[in-house]
């Protein structure tokens, strides 16, 4: 099917990159909205969490997200290989690669897309493990806020009962408390914040670039799309950064 639709070339792959990337951006918006509930109130957040878990479609969406991610990563790697091979002999000049022209959209962000992508991938793996599979004792009392379970406690059970939607509920699984517990550790919060900055770096180039790859770029809308990309990046990444920041600053407890 895909071969028939001819996605298997440099243009097609970039279209796949753009579609999968933008899909993940949409996910990010949903994710962010949910997370921000934490600032509004822990119970709101937990209610939202249990509502999500009660939906039977969630595992399918999760699988879908995984597939999208894999497509995105796989195509990125294939394109990287192709791009690497497209210029086997590098330039001698050290000033190559940056024209200093106003027309160039080359930035730190665009230059280090692959690096930021890899960091984000590692972060996703960690993040999913951290809040989904690495299930610390959720109902443990909050205490001083320093008993973050991420601190390496070997032998901690990583699979909890909470993934089954049945015995969910505030008493059984206080996700909000878990988040607060975890992110109270400044190191963990720092990791999250750094990763969000990396994500911002990635999205800063990626969003507007995705529109170009999809062909939505147009002399008249070009500026608007650039701004949309920048604002989107700022709002999403800023929003995600806000949560660990507020927790570390003890605004959210």
């Amino acid at each position: 099917m895909l071969a028939k639709l001819r996605f298997n070339n440099v243009v097609g792959k970039k279209i796949v990159m753009a579609i999968t990337g933008l899909a993940m951006c949409i996910f990010l918006v949903g994710h962010l909205v949910g997370n921000l509930l934490l600032i509004w109130g822990k119970d709101k957040f937990n209610a939202y969490g249990s509502f999500l878990i009660s939906l039977p479609i969630v595992p399918i969406i999760e699988l879908g997200l995984l597939a999208i991610l894999l497509f995105h990563v796989w195509d990125a790697l294939v394109l990287l290989k192709g791009n690497y091979e497209a210029r086997p002999i590098p330039y001698h000049s050290k000033t190559w690669g940056r024209t200093k022209s106003k027309k160039s959209k080359k930035t730190w962000a665009s230059t280090f897309m692959m690096t930021s992508g890899i960091i984000i991938l590692l972060f996703i793996v960690f993040h999913v493990w951290h809040f989904k599979y690495h299930n610390p004792v959720a109902s443990r009392p909050v205490g001083d806020g320093h008993n973050s379970s991420i601190v390496l406690f070997p032998g901690q059970p990583t699979v909890g009962q909470t993934t089954s939607g049945q015995n969910s509920g505030k008493e059984a699984f206080d996700l909000a408390q878990l988040v607060v517990n975890e992110l109270s550790n400044p190191i963990v919060a720092g990791i999250y914040i750094l990763c969000m900055i990396t994500l911002a770096l990635h999205l800063y180039h990626a969003v507007s670039s995705a529109f170009t790859s999809l062909g939505a770029n147009h002399p008249r809308y070009q500026k608007g799309l650039m701004w949309f990309g920048n604002i989107f990046t700022f709002v999403v990444c800023g929003g995600f950064t806000l949560i660990p920041l507020l927790i570390v600053l003890k605004v959210v407890q």
């Binding site: 192709g82 791009n83 497209a86 022209s101 080359k106 180039h205 507007s208 670039s209």
Partner: peptide, 14 residues
Amino acid sequence: KFGSCSNEGECEAV
């Protein structure tokens, strides 16, 4: 075997 476009616009600049 040309590479893919990263939408950096260095092409337009030169």
